[in-house]
Design a protein around this nucleic acid. Structure first.
Lengths: 202, 202
DNA sequence: CCGCATGTGTCAGGGCCTGACAGATATGGC
DNA sequence: GCCATATCTGTCAGGCCCTGACACATGCGG
């Protein structure tokens, strides 16, 4: 058993990530060309040189090719939030965490491909649904941390829930309108403007 | 052809609604007992005395039994919003529209059954997803009306989007926490408290 | 060279959903 | 009461998504 010999990602994992990336590339091309619902899993698999069964060994569901790995990125956002100073206003911390996430995407050069993916996403019902589920997962991951930051005024649970959901709505709107327009407006910019509309004016 | 002889709902429609109600009743019982994913469409159909094919003639998808008819209720909410005075603050109009919707549910005596349905809903991934899609539909229906109410400050589109999404998030939180607790807290009360946390403090 | 873990293909099957067809039922006109 | 029509229903066939089970291949360590 190789166990964790030394370096971070094992060879297996590198290979696995590479195959995932290849599948994603092929699939997004097909989706952009024909539409998500008009492409079958077997067609993606064939284009990527594998069987349909193997496709499902990399992606539990067809939607996951577009939506990505909510759990993984959710942990990133959660950790980013946790790393913020404890006396910072929650809205600021949330904004910073989301922007860190956006920066993570940009770093991978996924931005351009991300726009293609986003357009596919907003144009397909089952994808929108899966994406909204992702947000709910993030919400459940962020909720306890946000609640811990709020003053205990007897309504903390509800307030935390609202803040988390509202900020996620901002994130969603930012991504959606970003994918919608053709100019070079930044997601971060849209996100900041969105936050500014909701956060307490104080 | 009967056309529209006179009275509102034709006999066909009454029958159709009755069958739908019967299916809903049977299905919710099964879901509450075994869980949504552990009940097949054929089992629901058998319990309701019909074939699986016929079930799908009343509900396009299994999830629709729990989620209901988003289009229909969305129109109700939209119309309720449109009926509000044009000089009322949008947040007030939205709150009033949602409360009218809640009142509609209560009127049908669906509240108790609604709580059962809500609990099934929040405990099943595919149902949560479908429900969130419903909210997106409502959002698209409300968006133009909300935008028309806002002062044209150059950022109206984004602001309208944010307000709609945030208010829908409030509605979602209100319903979810309502289903979560066992006391007699009203949905309306939760909704008002949620709104109070987001609307401009002015 | 031999075990062992991992990756892959094939096969079979369940579940959701749809189109097509034929039989049953109800509605409205005569 | 009878017929033409529209509607409802069941059955059948099929496609698609996804999963478990099995067998074969590949690569690694001893």
């Amino acid at each position: 058993m190789p166990s964790t010999t030394s370096s971070g990602p094992s060879l297996r994992e590198i290979s696995r990530d590479a195959v995932r990336a290849r599948i994603t590339e092929v699939a997004l091309d097909l989706f952009a060309e024909r539409g998500f619902d008009q492409v079958t899993v077997d067609q993606i698999a064939a284009a990527a040189g594998m069987s349909g069964r193997t496709f499902h060994r990399y992606f539990p569901a067809k939607e996951d090719v577009v939506v990505g790995e909510p759990e993984r990125w959710g942990e990133f956002v959660r950790d980013a939030f946790a790393a913020r100073p404890a006396d910072e206003p929650v809205w600021d911390s949330l904004l910073a965490s989301f922007e860190a996430f956006i920066g993570l995407l940009a770093q991978d050069g996924r931005v351009q491909r991300g726009k293609v993916g986003m357009r596919i996403l907003v144009s397909t019902a089952s994808l929108r649904a899966r994406n909204l589920e992702k947000h709910q997962l993030w919400g459940r991951m962020l909720l306890p941390l946000v609640a811990a930051r709020l003053p205990d005024d007897g309504d903390t649970a509800l307030r935390a829930e609202i803040i988390v959901q509202a900020s996620l709505a901002c994130l969603d709107v930012a991504f959606t309108t970003w994918a919608d327009v053709d100019d070079d407006t930044t997601i971060s910019e849209l996100l900041e403007r969105s936050f500014a509309m909701l956060r307490p004016t104080a």
